[in-house]
C-alpha cells in the first residue's frame, strides 16, 4: 500500500516537473482567457440547470392551472401573477416552469444530435482514413453530396421524410454534422497514416487493427472533439429552427425552447414574452458553447502555443 502510494506520488512529481501533455497544456491555456471562462460559466450553468430544473420548477410544467385558464382568452394571455412568475402560456401552463424544464429538453436534443453526428461521422471518416483507396473515394463523394446541400435544407428534408417526433429532430440535426466530422477525422487520419510513428509501428509488424485503433485514431480525435463543442451550439439552434418551422416534435406540450418559440410565433402580438424568453435562452446557450469551442480550438492550434 505504502509502496503503491509512493509510486503514485512519484508519478505525480514527475508529471509536474517533466512537462505537460498537449491536452493538459491546451486546457491550461484555454482557461487563461476570459472569453473561455465566460463560455464555461454559461455552459456550466446551463448543464446544472438542465439537471436540476425538474426539481426546482415551482409548478408542474405539463399541467394546465385553473387560475391561469380562468383568465385565458384568445386575445389575452395572463402575465405575471402571484405564484406564476412569468404568467401563463397559451395553454394555461406555468410559463416560468416550462422555461426552466426547457433547458433539459434542449440540452437533450443538442447533446444527442451532436453525439449521433459524431458517431456516424467518425465511422465514415474513420473507414475512409483507415482504408484509403476506393473506400475513401466513395465515402468522401458521399459526404461531398451531403455538404453540397445547405445544412438547414438537409435537416428539413430529413425531418419532412420522418414522422414528427423528438428523435426526428435529433436525427435530422445530427445529419448536418455527419459530413463535417467525417471530413475532419478522415483528414487527421490520413495525416497520421504517413506519420513517423505509424511507419515505425508498421515496421514492428503491429497489426493493422491495432495501428488504426491505438496509433491513428487517438492521435486524430482532437479536432473532432473541438468541432463537437462548436456543433452543440449550432445543433441547438438548428433544432429550434426545425421546431419553429413546425417540422419538429408533434407533441406540442413538450417543454423545449425551440418548440416553445415555434408555438409562440402566432402570439407575438398577444404576449411577446412567450417568444422572447425562449429565444434569449437559446441565444445565450449557443453563445456559451461557441465561446467555449472557439477558445478550445484556438488553444489546441499548435501555432498559438506559447
Amino acid at each position: 500500500m505504502s509502496i503503491l502510494s509512493t509510486r503514485k506520488a512519484e508519478k505525480i512529481d514527475s508529471l509536474a516537473e517533466g512537462g505537460t501533455s498537449l491536452a493538459m497544456d491546451a486546457l491550461r491555456r484555454t482557461f487563461r482567457s476570459p472569453v473561455a471562462i465566460l463560455g464555461l460559466v454559461i455552459v456550466g450553468l446551463f448543464v446544472i440547470l438542465a439537471i436540476i430544473s425538474p426539481f426546482i420548477a415551482p409548478k408542474d410544467p405539463y399541467r394546465p392551472y385553473p387560475e391561469l385558464k380562468a383568465e385565458l382568452t384568445p386575445s389575452n394571455i395572463p402575465g405575471p401573477m402571484p405564484g406564476f412568475l412569468l404568467g401563463s402560456d397559451q395553454n394555461g401552463y406555468d410559463f416560468f416552469s416550462r422555461l426552466l424544464v426547457g433547458a433539459q429538453q434542449t440540452l437533450f436534443v443538442g447533446v444527442f444530435a451532436t453525439l449521433i453526428g459524431v458517431a456516424v461521422g467518425m465511422i465514415i471518416g474513420g473507414l475512409a482514413g483507415a482504408f484509403g483507396g476506393w473506400v475513401d473515394s466513395v465515402l468522401m463523394r458521399l459526404t461531398d453530396i451531403m455538404l453540397s446541400i445547405p445544412s438547414l435544407l438537409l435537416a428539413i428534408s430529413i425531418a419532412a421524410l420522418l414522422p414528427g417526433s423528438q428523435w426526428t429532430v435529433i436525427i435530422a440535426v445530427a445529419m448536418i454534422g455527419v459530413p463535417v466530422f467525417a471530413r475532419l477525422l478522415r483528414g487527421a487520419m490520413i495525416a497520421q497514416r504517413s506519420s513517423d510513428h505509424v511507419l515505425a509501428a508498421t515496421a514492428l509488424g503491429v497489426k493493422r487493427k491495432t495501428i488504426v485503433f491505438r496509433h491513428m485514431l487517438p492521435n486524430s480525435i482532437g479536432p473532432v472533439i473541438v468541432q463537437a463543442t462548436l456543433t452543440l451550439a449550432t445543433a441547438i439552434i438548428d433544432a429550434a429552427a426545425l421546431s419553429f418551422l413546425g417540422l419538429g416534435d408533434s407533441d406540442w406540450r413538450r417543454a423545449e425552447w425551440g418548440l416553445m418559440l415555434g408555438n409562440a410565433q402566432e402570439l407575438l402580438s398577444v404576449k411577446p414574452s412567450l417568444a422572447f424568453f425562449p429565444a434569449i435562452a437559446i441565444i445565450i446557450v449557443a453563445l456559451g458553447f461557441t465561446l467555449l469551442g472557439e477558445s478550445m480550438r484556438e488553444s489546441l492550434d499548435p501555432k498559438n502555443r506559447r
Binding site: D196, H197, L204, R214, H215, P218
Partner: peptide, 16 residues
Amino acid sequence: LGMVFQDPLSSLNPVI
C-alpha cells in the same frame, strides 16, 4: 527484422 528510425520523438506514439 527490426528497424530504428531517425527521429526518436516522432517515431513514438505521443498518446500512449
